[in-house]
Amino acid sequence: MSVEIALRAARVRYGPLEALHGVDLPVPPGTVTVLLGRNGSGRTTVLRALAGTVPLSAGRVLWRGEDVTRLRAHRRARRGLCFVPDRRAVYATLTVAENLALGAPAGDVAPALGAYPELRPLLPRRAGTLSGGEQRMLALSRVLLTPARVVLADEPALGMSPGVAARTYALLGALCARGAAVVLAEQRPPDGLPRGTLAHELRRGALSFSGELTEFTSRASGEGRPPSGRA
């Protein structure tokens, strides 16, 4: 299996607290990888470590075999990494149109409005006045406006209606069909992920499961607990 980007023995500390304990995570191209776990399990920190928005205290980040551990987040973005965090993912004081323009170097925002037509009547509004689901649509539209090689999204469908959420996962799956490596952080497996999706469950900063999502859901059902281990 080829690997687009990976963590190797990655450790991350927030002051005295170690949030990741030597995590090894290979991310293949053309595949959705979903990170599962409760709040505080380390799944968001994994995304931030891959994106370069938090430093590693030990270990490495490899991108197509090249060590990019010390490469800053904006340089990773220029190489084709798109990170959609769970919070502060839009420029709140700018309008929706201005947010889209910043994400479209060629000036063509049609792909974003085609994917999320709900944004069209909101173009003159400031992004900070949008609902949570509308802000998620705006944030994710950036992924559709640039030729991203690696897409990292933290709970991409948070606050969306079921129909828009299903459309969102279909859009992310389509990116994989074009060769992108897509990594999602979720509390539990969402519906609509493509066949062959890989799953990694994190518990207290360490991996407790790695394999295909179908294997994870079967295993979780056999243990008599909801997927992702939530009570």
Rank of each mutant, 00 (worst) to 15 (best):
G179T: 01
L144F: 10
G52T: 06
G224I: 10
A97F: 02
A106E: 12
G103K: 03
V182L: 12
T53S: 15
G30P: 01
A127M: 04
S2Y: 02
L144G: 08
R195G: 09
L198K: 04
T129R: 14
T146P: 04
G107T: 09
E134Q: 15
L158Q: 14
E4W: 00
V46D: 06
T168N: 05
E155G: 07
G224F: 06
A9C: 03
A104V: 12
N99G: 14
Y14G: 03
P111W: 09
T168C: 15
P26W: 03
S57R: 11
A157P: 02
S41D: 04
R225E: 11
S228W: 13
G229Q: 09
G103R: 09
L25V: 03
D108P: 11
S2A: 14
G80Y: 11
G159K: 14
L122Y: 12
A220F: 13
A6S: 13
M137D: 06
T129L: 10
P29G: 03
E186N: 05
L213D: 09
L130W: 04
L62D: 00
R87G: 00
E4L: 00
S2V: 09
F83R: 02
L123K: 03
G128P: 10
V23F: 02
V150I: 14
A165H: 00
A177I: 04
A49L: 10
E223N: 08
L193R: 00
